[in-house]
Amino acid sequence: MFEAKLIQGNLIKKIMEGLKDLVTEANFDLSPGGVSLQAMDSSHVALVALMLRGDAFENYRCDRPRSIGMNLVNLSKVLKCAGNDDTMTLKADDTQNNITLVFESQAEDKYAEVQMELMDIDSEHLGIPDNTYDAIVKMPSAQFSQIVKDLSSIGDTVTVSVTKDGITFSTSGDVGTAHITCKQNTSMEKEADHTTVNLEHPVTLTFALRYFVTFAKSTSLSHQMSISLSKELPVMVEYAMGDMGHIRFYLAPKIDD
């Protein structure tokens, strides 16, 4: 038996916002420690890794590890039945091929129960190495989102360059070229507004911009996000959900032939 209750049920809605444009179906791995997911996009150049710790839930019970396959488009439809302030309880009986989602209003005056069929999905798990990155930049997630959206109307690829002075996003297209630099800045009162650059080595990498736009759909999960870069390795874009878990996106760089 698997059962887990989230007081802030809309966390799942927010997570789905970031997932559903990247992957259409995925296995959720349920274990006594929590819920995780690893999935590649259809062109196999990007990977998303989600981790929600068991103690992020109000009541968490997972009697045995199990993978449950879900169509994320269908899951998003089901989640429309949940109000933004509703609690959300997920239940999956080991003997059944479905999941039950229960949405309850905080005032306990509305109760919705939806059952959704599970599916068998073939998926390969990749071993993500624990990289030491050349550069790690933390910045407000809303700022990152705005930058990649703005640049995506100018070009298709983005060159990300990190030096001790800051991070620069560059693109070019028919319109012209654009460079946006964010310097390290820790003068604001709120830490979530800071931009910090942790640099081992200066690094420059080029990526398909549309993936960054997709990753930025997780903006509502966290005020801060981080970009971790190493020479000729996939970038990691992370949205940490406090001590509840994280969603991490990996994207292969474009490398000169």
Binding site: L47, H125, L126, Y250, L251, A252, D257
Partner: peptide, 14 residues
């Protein structure tokens, strides 16, 4: 031209 390898070619099997 720029090439983009699959993510699996970087990470491989666990």
């Amino acid at each position: 031209a720029m090439k983009q390898r699959s993510i699996a070619s970087f990470f491989g099997s666990p």
